[in-house]
C-alpha cells in the first residue's frame, strides 16, 4: 500500500472543501435535529389526546417512518413529492439548495417518529399516580404534564434520545446520494482527484467518530447531571 501521505489531501483547496463539507454536515444535523425534536414532541402530545383517530394517525405516521428505509424516504421526497409542489416553489428551491432542504425534511420527519416513540415510552413509564397527585393539588392537565410528568419522562427517555441523535447525525450522510456536499460526498470527490484513498477515508472516519463520540459523551454528561438519586 505504500506510505501514507496526507499532504495532498490537506492542501489548500481540498482542505477548504473538507472544511465546508463538515460545516454543511453540522448545519444539516443541527437543523434536522431541531425539526425532529419539534415533530417528536408534537406527535407525543397528540398521541395522548382522547381521540382514537388522532392516536391512529400518529401510529400510522410512526410505523411508516420506521419501516421504510431512510434512503427511500429521501428519494421519495426529492424525486417524487417535489414534483407536486407548485412551480414557483420548485424554482425557488432549486436556486436555494433544494437537495439540502429535502434531506432536512425527510430525515427530520423520519427521526421525529423515533423521538416521539422514545418520549411516549418515557411518559408511559411514569405511573399515573404522579399525574393524579399533581391534579389533586389543583394543577391543570397541561401544568401537571409540564411540571411533573414530562421532567421525569424526559430523564427516562434520555438514553434513547441520545441514541437517536447519533442515528440522526449518521443519517444526514445519506444526503450525499442526492448531491448534498456533506462530508461523505466531498470525501469521494477528494478521493477521485487525489487517489489517496486510505488517507482521505481515515480523515473522514476520524471526523465522524469524533462527532459521534462527542454526542455520546455529551449525552452521558447530561444523563449524570440530571439523574435522580435512587432511580
Amino acid at each position: 500500500m505504500g506510505r501514507l501521505d496526507f499532504s495532498t489531501i490537506l492542501r489548500g483547496d481540498h482542505l477548504a472543501s473538507l472544511g465546508s463539507s463538515v460545516l454543511t454536515m453540522l448545519e444539516l444535523t443541527a437543523l434536522t435535529w431541531l425539526l425532529a425534536m419539534v415533530v417528536g414532541i408534537v406527535l407525543a402530545l397528540v398521541r395522548m389526546s382522547p381521540s382514537t383517530l388522532m392516536q391512529r394517525a400518529v401510529a400510522v405516521y410512526v410505523e411508516y417512518h420506521q419501516n421504510v428505509p431512510m434512503l427511500v424516504q429521501i428519494f421519495l421526497w426529492y424525486f417524487g413529492i417535489s414534483t407536486f409542489l407548485p412551480q414557483e416553489w420548485q424554482q425557488w428551491l432549486n436556486h436555494h439548495g433544494s437537495e439540502f432542504f429535502f434531506a432536512f425534511i425527510s430525515v427530520g420527519l423520519a427521526m421525529g417518529a423515533y423521538v416521539s416513540e422514545a418520549l411516549r415510552s418515557g411518559i408511559r413509564s411514569i405511573p399515573s399516580s404522579q399525574h393524579e397527585a399533581a391534579r389533586a393539588l389543583g394543577l391543570t392537565f397541561l401544568q401537571s404534564y409540564r411540571l411533573v410528568v414530562l421532567p421525569q419522562a424526559l430523564r427516562i427517555a434520555l438514553p434513547a434520545l441520545i441514541s437517536h441523535t447519533v442515528l440522526l447525525f449518521k443519517n444526514t450522510s445519506l444526503a450525499m446520494t442526492i448531491g448534498v456536499a456533506e462530508l461523505t460526498y466531498i470525501t469521494r470527490e477528494i478521493e477521485n482527484e487525489s487517489f489517496r484513498t486510505v488517507e482521505i477515508y481515515m480523515v473522514a472516519t476520524v471526523i465522524y467518530l469524533a462527532i459521534s463520540l462527542t454526542i455520546m459523551a455529551l449525552g452521558s454528561r447530561i444523563e449524570r447531571r440530571t439523574s435522580l438519586a435512587g432511580r
Binding site: 443519517n171 445519506l174 461523505t184 470525501t187 472516519t205 465522524y208 467518530l209
Partner: peptide, 18 residues
C-alpha cells in the same frame, strides 16, 4: 464496535468497497 456504530453505514460501505 465503536467505528461501526460511530461512522455512517454509507461510509463503511465505501471503505469495504475499496
Amino acid at each position: 464496535v465503536y467505528v461501526a456504530r460511530g461512522v455512517p453505514l454509507i461510509m463503511l460501505i465505501f471503505w469495504m468497497y475499496y
